[in-house]
């Protein structure tokens, strides 16, 4: 999958700078430009939905869709890893615990020849 290794170096740096500039623009927005504006609570509430939407849309597809095809078997090791990690993340909210349990489930499933 990794297209980064084949990307021209200058193009990689342009990506890095673009992300940095866009993120800085958000940070400096109100502090630097319009200091008196108060964001209404209702808008803040709605905006707080954006990060969960993006993170879920990033997290879920790779569990089912890989190398150009859907992988819907219940024995799909990525799916089992993801579900295990989701359970641990939900109960513990631990970053390391979530990653370790996900990989643990993955190696368990791929090591044990089921079916």
């Amino acid at each position: 999958m990794s297209g980064i290794a084949t990307m021209p170096t200058a193009w990689v740096w342009i990506h890095i700078l673009a992300i940095a500039v866009a993120t800085y623009a958000l940070r400096v927005s109100f502090i630097g430009l319009f200091s008196y504006y108060e964001v209404p609570e209702g808008i803040k509430d709605q905006m707080s939905l954006i990060p969960p939407a993006v993170l879920a849309a990033l997290a879920v597809p790779p569990l089912f869709y890989r190398d150009g095809g859907f992988y819907l078997s219940p024995l799909n090791p990525f799916l089992i890893a993801g579900l295990t990690a989701a359970l641990v993340a939900w109960r513990t909210e631990s970053l390391i615990g979530t990653i370790v349990s996900g990989f643990g489930a993955y190696f368990l499933v791929t090591a044990v020849p089921i079916a």
């Binding site: 999958m1 969960p52 993170l55 879920a56 990033l58 997290a59 879920v60 790779p62 569990l63 890989r66 990525f78 890893a81 993801g82 990690a85 989701a86 993340a89 939900w90 909210e93 631990s94 970053l95 979530t98 990653i99 996900g102 990989f103 993955y106």
Partner: peptide, 13 residues
């Protein structure tokens, strides 16, 4: 390839 989905799950909950 599994690292990123797991990290995103950890950040989501």
């Amino acid at each position: 390839d599994l690292v990123l989905p797991l990290v995103f799950i950890a950040l989501l909950f």
